[in-house]
Computed example of a mutant assay.
Amino acid sequence: MPLSLLDTFRVLASFDPPRGALKGAPWDEYVDWAIAQGLAPLAAYNLEYRLGPTAAPEWARDRLLAVYQGSVNDNVMKLVNFKQVVDELQGRKLVLMGSAAFAEALYPHIGFRPVLELQLLMRRMDVDGFAGFLSNHEFRPDSVPAHSGATKVVTDGRTSVSLYSDILGPQRREQALGIIDRAKPMKVYGPSLFRADLEDSVLLVCLEHARQGYDVPWLSFIDLRELVTGAKWMGGVYSRPLDIPALLARAAEWRVERALYTSLSIVARLFPEAAAEATAALPPLRRATRELLDRTVVGPISTPGQTSALRGLERVRRLLTGQ
């Protein structure tokens, strides 16, 4: 029986894919979709080094492998350059979030997780100072609109850096400061760089999903899968079980319970092996709310290959972010 696009995704998004599981895979459909969703690097590695050269047609392997090689080079360039810039910065507490914080903490190889931009959270009073510091390294204000509420965005023409302060909105500045206070050191980037705690990282991913109306690359659901299941392959800072009471308490404080429910429900549908951990962390929403979210967001978003936007996107955003 031919594999579905979802079946193919599950195999190639695994860190330990089963051999012989791709017979009849829809390669014509999968390859372009996977590249657009940021999945190509991990898929290419699995095809070349885990599943063997006969698992996919040569043209599919070649296209995915080219993206993988480009991702490795691009990630190394961005992250090494950033390290050189911030390595000796003293006296600050800057929290690296998103793809740059996840690439080496959640994935067995840094090239598996493309880093499109750098995102940093800091106290409001530090934004202008850090932007000025970056200006000494050829970073200038970006001409594009600020991403997802970033206070400031700068770029050196190769790497975009989004600087956040009130990431939870002006009414929840105290909770945003809590993220900074709980952050863990990232010594590889010097004394001023930190990464968000595990439970905060889960909620920040879910909040980003909601603010984007779930128009996000499927790679982000792999990020969330690994956070929820304790990054079992890595033995690092995120390799522990979720503190579910703390997670749910913070979700209530941030008013992101609906976003948490939605994102975890999508992960449970996409990855059967992560369903138990994801379901255990679901917040206790009213039944009517759960059914609405399942029908209008979870079901449609969990269908790969869908290209149309969710109906009533602004309403969905407001519903999910508690606005």
Rank of each mutant, 00 (worst) to 15 (best):
M1F: 06
S4V: 11
L5M: 09
V11T: 15
D16I: 02
R19N: 12
K23D: 03
G24M: 01
P26W: 02
P26D: 03
W27L: 06
Y30R: 07
Y30P: 02
L42A: 10
N46L: 08
L47A: 06
P53Q: 09
A55R: 01
A55E: 09
P57M: 12
E58S: 13
D62P: 06
G70V: 09
G70N: 13
M77R: 15
K83R: 15
Q90E: 10
G91F: 11
V95S: 06
M97Y: 05
A100T: 08
A101W: 02
F102G: 04
A103F: 04
H109Q: 11
R113T: 00
E117I: 00
E117M: 05
L118S: 00
L118D: 00
L120R: 05
L121T: 10
R123T: 15
R124C: 10
G129D: 14
F130L: 14
F133W: 07
N136T: 14
N136G: 14
H137E: 12
F139R: 01
P145W: 02
H147Q: 13
A150Q: 06
K152I: 11
V153D: 01
T155S: 15
D156H: 04
R158D: 10
V161T: 08
I167Y: 03
E174S: 11
Q175H: 11
Q175Y: 07
L177K: 09
L177C: 08
G178W: 03
I180P: 10
D181Q: 12
R182P: 10
R182T: 09
K184G: 12
P185D: 10
G190I: 11
S192V: 03
F194H: 12
F194G: 08
L198G: 02
E199M: 07
D200R: 02
V202T: 04
C206P: 03
Q212M: 15
G213N: 11
V216F: 13
P217A: 14
I222T: 06
D223N: 13
E226P: 08
V228D: 02
V228M: 08
T229L: 09
A231W: 00
G235P: 09
G235K: 11
Y238Q: 05
R240Y: 00
R240M: 01
I244D: 00
L248R: 00
A249W: 00
A251R: 00
A251P: 03
A252F: 00
R255Q: 07
V256E: 04
V256K: 03
E257M: 05
R258Q: 08
L260Y: 03
Y261N: 10
S265W: 01
R269T: 03
R269V: 02
R269K: 15
L270S: 02
F271E: 06
P272F: 05
A275Y: 03
A280D: 09
L282C: 14
P284V: 05
L285T: 01
L285W: 01
A288W: 07
A288K: 06
T296D: 14
V298P: 03
V298W: 13
I301G: 01
T303M: 14
T303G: 07
T303C: 12
T307C: 03
G312D: 05
L313I: 14
R317E: 11
L319I: 12
L320V: 08
